[in-house]
Simulated scan of single mutants.
Amino acid sequence: MRILNICAYTWAIGGPARIIYDHTLEVLKQGHQVDILSPMTEGEKMYPVPEGAKLIACTRTTPISSVYREFSVPMYRYLKAHIQDYDVIHMHGIWHFGSLAPFLIPNKAIKVITIHGLLDKWALAHHQWKKDLVTFLYQKSILAKADLIQINNTDEEQDVIRYLGERPKNLKIIPNGMKLEEYQNLPQKGAFRKRHGLGADQKVLLFMGRLNVKKGLDLLLPAFLKIHQQVPEATLILAGPDDGYEKTTREFISQHQLEGKVKLVGMLTDTLKKEALADADLFLLPSYSEGFSIAVLEAMTSGVPALVSDRVGFGDYIARHQAAYLCKLEPDDIAKGMLKILQDSDYAQNLAKRAQKMVEDNFDIRVIANQLLAEYKKVNKM
């Protein structure tokens, strides 16, 4: 099969790019062709491309793309010229031009849309007027026209049913996966601590994600304020690019004299990310909304005990396996969970062990990639 993924394939976008990367590695092994069509802005750092795959980078068209996400005339021109070359067009996310464009050009390709959590209540309420407009214009109709809608869990299934008013026949639950071996052999401990002036006796509380209110930073910062005097050796590391909340974060740090206790270290990639995970005592993501958090999977695979909300994309698995402290979306409970993990080493170790087993049993990319390929083939025969 000739497969085209459409996604903003950049480091800043986070999980979807990593999902495409890992899936592509497995698909290429089976002899399929994979291209990645990515709208981008000059200066953005593109995610690595697996050997054997092809990246087609298309410049976003401003100023329209600042209002209508991923709008790109070059992307449309590419599709118009080459759409007949593909058997499968897999669109990642909704509400943006990349998920509409393939429906504007006549073609016979199988069209797949992965929702990535963008229909949950929090996501729908964010910039609601835009989403109401897109819903009125086309969003429900293209979901009906898609050959396959991929969702990750039963929560997301309910989101789709609530949005469309019924369970569509083209809906399929296929969780995302990851290449587990990359995080099962981490760098030697100490490199991250040394780089950021942290002693061996300090507790590293690691948040990895875009600095966006969606990630629960408005809850995490007050929670850390509640516990930092009880655990004076704790340091909160915020690792991620600014996505609208860095200014507020820095103001909070200054207002509460948390300089030195909360460190913004920017986006961590490759070895730097693995060094941070190797040195972390606790991973934190009290998110309001995630499609399927690869960052949480990475932390769990790395053996780091985690505190997360049930909105990270696989909260049902986490609850069933008791694989993390599932926090309520309130600072008091996040603070309570932090203290539990930091002060009860047996509890923390058991969380980490159960999480590793959960990931190994359910989210190995080799299994997930074959599930998705099987769905492509099934649709192709219908």
Rank of each mutant, 00 (worst) to 15 (best):
L28T: 14
H92W: 12
P222R: 06
N370G: 03
K130I: 11
A280D: 05
Q349I: 12
T248S: 08
A101R: 01
D218P: 10
D242V: 09
K121C: 12
K203P: 01
A8T: 13
L217H: 09
W11Y: 15
K54E: 14
A239E: 04
S302L: 00
E42K: 06
D22V: 07
M208E: 13
I365A: 09
Q255C: 09
T24W: 03
A57S: 11
D361T: 03
R193G: 09
K261Q: 12
E26C: 06
A335F: 14
S254H: 15
P39N: 03
D310F: 03
P305W: 13
L180R: 02
K54C: 05
G14P: 03
L272G: 10
Y325K: 11
K189Y: 05
G98P: 05
D361S: 01
I113K: 03
S65K: 03
T301C: 15
K273W: 07
I94Y: 12
S66H: 15
L137C: 11
Q349A: 12
N185D: 07
E360L: 07
T154K: 14
I19F: 15
M1Y: 01
S38P: 05
M91F: 02
M382E: 03
L180V: 07
L124E: 14
F136V: 04
K121Q: 13
A8K: 09
Y138F: 15
L372A: 06
R195Y: 02
G216C: 05
D201E: 09
E360I: 07
Q230N: 14
V308K: 00
S65H: 10
A335D: 10
E70R: 01
N170C: 04
K145F: 14
S38W: 02
L104S: 05
L180W: 07
P48W: 02
N185C: 07
I20E: 08
G209S: 08
V112A: 07
G117L: 08
Q188L: 13
K189V: 14
D218C: 10
R193P: 08
E375H: 04
F71V: 06
S302V: 05
N152P: 03
